[in-house]
């Protein structure tokens, strides 16, 4: 993101290292840097999460509202993404500078969540044709250190995992109108089923190979990057007592997009997609285990809450 100036020799050094699957900080081509994740940081949102990935800091808040479903999709709820690139992140985002980037990120998130196999909107239906839940997912980029799409998708999945949808107690039909009753108890709610929500992986093409989670120096060596959105495995996000109860899982791509002024060869494209899927599957497993552990700690009152103090 920032204007890093690299000499030609440094770029050659990075390119040769990537060719041998060895990067300047010792990672392999599909390793991520360590991340910190915390959910439930914003008390007024139905669900929230904060993710720090090296220099990138993302805060996601999920708000739920009751809305009328679309006439051609009466049994489905709605979901909307808003990305806000604040001027805190970099001075380039001042005024309307960050608008293009915000639009492109919200666009790709919308496409990733479009298929029912990625996120089933049926779970947001209250009364078919009359009332449904609408989720507003607000993504705030607090600090921009490269690799935004990955961090945003992780934070969104974590926030959705943390989202509580209140139980609708009664839905009376009163002359065509629906009367809803929700209880006052904030814990009388259900969790969303986000096991299959997609995770985006950005692969930067450097030379003939692609790297995952590039640093700013590596990003300035690359002309084109590929974004692959892979659906998640519900196994890690639910408490299944019996392993055989689960249907066989196969990771699927829910969105693929290219970014940058360059082009790729067909072989590059194939390798990159394969790499992206492998990286996403590992990431998904790690995220699921972390989120599950956090939820268990919260239920047993063992969790320390740091919020923004760390």
């Amino acid at each position: 993101m920032a204007g890093i100036l690299l000499s030609h020799t440094e770029k050659v050094y990075i390119t040769h290292g990537v060719k041998n699957e060895y990067r300047s900080d010792g990672r392999s081509n599909i390793d991520y840097r360590p991340m910190e994740l915390e959910t439930d940081v914003v008390s007024h949102a139905s669900g929230s999460a904060r993710l720090r990935l090296a220099n990138t800091d993302i805060l996601v808040g999920v708000k739920t509202e009751i809305d009328v479903p679309k006439p051609d999709k009466p049994g489905l709820g709605k979901i909307e993404f808003f990305v806000d690139c604040s001027a805190n992140a970099t001075p380039e985002f001042e005024g309307r500078g960050g608008e293009q980037l915000a639009n492109s990120i919200s666009n790709i998130m919308l496409r990733a969540y479009q298929s029912a196999q990625a996120f089933n909107l049926k779970q947001l239906c209250i009364f078919e044709g009359k009332q449904c839940w609408k989720l507003y997912i607000d993504i705030l980029i607090l600090e921009c250190g490269g690799n935004l799409c990955d961090a945003v998708s992780l934070a969104v999945k974590a926030a959705l995992f943390n989202t509580r949808i209140p139980f609708v107690k009664a839905a009376l039909m009163d002359g065509g109108n629906v009367d809803l009753q929700l209880s006052d108890d904030p814990f009388d709610s259900k969790w969303l089923d986000v096991g299959s929500a997609p995770l985006l992986v950005t692969l930067c093409r450097i030379g003939e190979k692609c790297v995952v989670d590039p640093t700013a120096e590596e990003e300035s060596c690359s002309l084109v990057s590929l974004i692959v959105g892979v659906t998640g495995n519900p196994k890690y996000y639910n408490d299944y007592e019996d392993e055989e109860e689960l249907p066989a899982f196969e990771a699927k791509c829910s969105v693929i997009s290219m970014h940058g002024p360059g082009s790729v060869s067909p072989q590059n494209l194939r390798d990159a997609i394969n790499q992206g899927i492998i990286a996403a599957v590992c990431l998904d497993e790690a995220l699921g285990k972390t989120l599950f552990r956090e939820r268990r700690d919260t239920e047993q009152f063992k969790r320390h809450s740091y919020g923004f103090l760390k």
């Binding site: 298929s115 699927k252 791509c253 693929i256 997009s257 082009s263 067909p266 997609i273």
Partner: peptide, 12 residues
């Protein structure tokens, strides 16, 4: 390949 755009849910 200058641009590759996919939407939906497809296996590899």
């Amino acid at each position: 390949i200058a641009d590759f755009r996919q939407i939906g849910s497809l296996d590899i």
